[in-house]
Design a protein around this nucleic acid. Structure first.
Lengths: 225, 225
DNA sequence: ACAAAAACGAGAGCACTGCTCTTGCCGGAA
DNA sequence: TTCCGGCAAGAGCAGTGCTCTCGTTTTTGT
């Protein structure tokens, strides 16, 4: 995507990249609510109006940063979960999400915290946002055999939703396993959110032990070998 | 706290209440990032500078709204979980959190989403913020007998954190049960966050079935009768 | 009961924001 | 060579959080 044909296209891609980089730097130290187009422009020695040639609005800049964050997190998790026994991959993937979140708290808050603008979720973010859950699903799908713990049977509507979802991403996955993965993914997200946003203060903070134990119980629930 | 001694104290409390009410109205329809002190002042027919007699900054107004939101949610959950068999109370409490979150999405995002300001968590919010987790703990503590599912043993540091926490809130609770409640609370938070912030779109949305099933498995994990 | 002190609402003003519009400039295509 | 489109710059608009000052009103201490 950076391969522009003409020289002008190439410098445009380059400047776009620099803008995002500067914005990411400001985001990392001040948070999304304090990300100002004018400040970013000043950091780059431009005037603020020039920025609008590259991003039609502040929200569009944020959307670009959101996609980049999803992709950075997704790549990190995919790499962490690339090989090994299923349970090892599971731990590695979960630990990678947490590690990235702790290293980039403001970017994590941008994508997984409360939606910043009047909230819209542009369709363009979906592929990037799906990378982490798809990785988790792949770990379970690739497991040779699962020995999950007993659980309540799925009511018909839940089974239908699970079937619709598996049809899209992992056709051979049993419905109840799909539901368990979704629940585990929400659990992981909840745990990291609690830690990152300070809801574990004075109780289970630092959260390393609680995190490791919970991830292990998730693997048990899924029946990963 | 509204019982001021002098007439001035009483009108001050009344105006403070009106300001919070107007701010909450704006919050409910526009979100925290669009909450403007000047707009609130206009709604009340005041000039913006007059508002600073009641709240020293915008963040202080938000903090007041956060405490109110914690208390509203806490009261709702406490009432929902007031009586019945432990498992019934558990379902009622979880459903109450979700219902309140769906009815007041922006307020929920304010307290449980990414921290809006440069993030500080004033000590004054702690008692209000603790009401929901304390209610969940009380349900488990009040259960006559628990038959939890097998789980990995607690590593020493996790057991120590759990012991420290139980000593504060439920001295007679076994450590591993405390850890399970904490994990369940994070799970609940994660599930609601996913639903509210649109991360279940096109998969498990509407989330009623996934929510009910997951809450049931949490009750199983805790061994609630 | 009266004066000092504190609290209050209104207004002007500062520095900042997102965003628009206009004005020139300069490089690549016809 | 002459256009024309993308570009940076600047001015400007409406809005923001917040501070300060200035009269007025209410409470408090003597």
């Amino acid at each position: 995507m950076t391969a522009g044909r003409t020289a002008r296209d190439r410098v445009r891609a380059e400047i776009t990249r620099e803008i995002k980089e500067a914005a990411r730097a400001r985001l990392a130290e001040s948070g999304a609510h304090a990300l100002s187009l004018r400040a970013v422009a000043r950091d780059l020695g431009m005037v603020s109006s020039a920025l609008y040639r590259y991003f039609p609005s502040r929200d569009d800049l944020l959307t670009a940063l959101i996609i980049d964050a999803y992709d950075a997190l997704g790549a990190r998790v995919e790499q962490a979960a690339a090989s090994g026994a299923p349970r090892v991959r599971w731990h590695a993937a979960c630990a990678a999400v947490r590690a990235w979140a702790r290293e980039h708290p403001h970017e994590y808050a941008l994508v997984y915290g409360s939606p910043v603008p009047g909230y819209e979720a542009p369709q363009t973010t979906i592929p990037s946002a799906s990378r982490v859950p798809l990785t988790l699903i792949a770990i379970v799908r690739d497991a040779p055999e699962l020995t999950p713990t007993p659980a309540p049977p799925l009511p018909p509507d839940l089974a239908a939703q699970a079937a619709r979802t598996t049809a899209l991403v992992a056709p051979d996955l049993p419905d109840d396993v799909m539901v368990r993965v979704a629940a585990a993914w929400a659990h992981l997200y909840g745990l990291i959110g609690f830690e990152l946003f300070g809801h574990l203060a004075n109780t289970f903070d630092p959260a390393d032990a609680l995190f490791a134990w919970t991830v292990e119980t998730m693997a048990d629930t899924l029946g990963l070998p």
